[in-house]
Design a protein around this nucleic acid. Structure first.
Lengths: 140, 140
DNA sequence: ATAAAAACGTCAATATGCCTGACCTAAAAA
DNA sequence: TTTTTAGGTCAGGCATATTGACGTTTTTAT
C-alpha cells in the first residue's frame, strides 16, 4: 500500500514542480492530458473524464484558456458545444510534462528489464479495470 | 499516466467507501496504517511520515482516539512523548481495510501469475525510491 | 536550581478546492 | 414557438491544510 502510494507520488512529483512554477497544479495537468489525448473534446466530455462538477472545472480551465494554452471554439455542427484543443504553447507544455514522466519511468525501466515493465503495465491495467465497487465519479 | 492513476484510485476505492460509512476518510486510513506498521509510534514520528502539519493531524487523530480506535499513552522513558497504538477495535478495522486491498489486488494477481506480480511490486518499489527531485514532505 | 528546549495540544485566521443551487445566454430540438 | 441542451458564472457552504501564537508538561543544559 505504502509503496504504491509513494510510487504514484514520485511519478507526478516532477510535473507538479514544473506546473507550480507557472502557478498551475495537478488539475491543470489532468485537463491538458485529456485534451491532448482526445482531439476535439467537448467541455461536457471533459467533465465526464475528470469526474468533477462544471463549477470545479470552470476556474482551472479558464486559466488555461487565458494563458493561451488551451483554445475553445464552437463546434462545427453544433454551435452550443465548445471544442477544446491545445494551442502551440499548450502542446509544448503537455509534451514537456509527459516527457518528464516518461523519463522518470524509463530510468527505472532500464534497470528492471523489458518483461518487468510489461508486467507492471498490465497489472496496473488490470487493477484499474477492476474497480472493487463503483469508481464513484468524484474520484476518477 | 491515466492507467496508473486509475489503478491507485481503484486500490483505495473500497476502503474509502468503508471509511466513509463511519465518517472517516483517507487521512484516517493513513494514520491507522502507520500506527499499525510502526508499533509504539510517537506523534512526532507520525507527523514525519504523513508530512502534514500537526494542526492538520490534530483533528483526525483526536477523532480516532475519541472513537476508541487509537490509544495514546505517555512513553515510559520520556513522558512528554505520546505513544500511539491501535485498540482492539482499531486493529480490527485496520485489518479489515487491509484485507480489502489485498483481496482486490489478489483477484488481479490470480489472473496475472506469480512473476508478473513480483515485477509489479519491484517496479513500484523502484519508482518510489527514485524521486525525480525532492519528495516534498507535504506529499509523502 | 533555574533557564532553555522539546513534545504535544489547541485556538485563530487564512487560503484552497470542491460541492450544490440558482440563474443566464445561445443554440438546437420538439 | 416552446422546451431542451451545452455551457458559463455567482453565491453560499463545507472540508481541509497552512501558518502563527500560546500554554503545559517534562527533559536537558547551564
Amino acid at each position: 500500500m505504502e509503496v504504491f502510494f509513494r510510487a504514484y507520488q514520485a511519478f507526478t512529483a516532477k510535473p507538479d514542480e514544473m506546473l507550480a512554477r507557472r502557478g498551475l497544479s495537478r488539475v491543470h495537468h489532468r485537463i491538458l492530458f485529456f485534451i491532448a489525448s482526445h482531439p476535439a473534446l467537448s467541455v461536457g466530455e471533459l467533465l465526464e473524464h475528470l469526474g468533477v462538477s462544471k463549477q470545479a472545472l470552470n476556474t482551472p480551465l479558464r486559466q488555461l484558456i487565458e494563458m493561451g494554452l488551451v483554445v475553445s471554439a464552437p463546434a462545427e455542427g453544433d454551435k452550443r458545444k465548445r471544442l477544446l484543443a491545445l494551442s502551440g504553447a499548450g502542446e509544448k507544455l503537455e509534451h514537456t510534462l509527459r516527457r518528464e514522466q516518461i523519463r522518470h519511468v524509463q530510468r527505472v525501466f532500464a534497470d528492471m528489464g523489458e518483461p518487468a515493465v510489461a508486467s507492471w503495465l498490465s497489472v496496473n491495467q488490470a487493477l484499474a479495470e477492476r474497480p472493487p465497487k463503483k469508481p464513484s465519479a468524484a474520484e476518477v
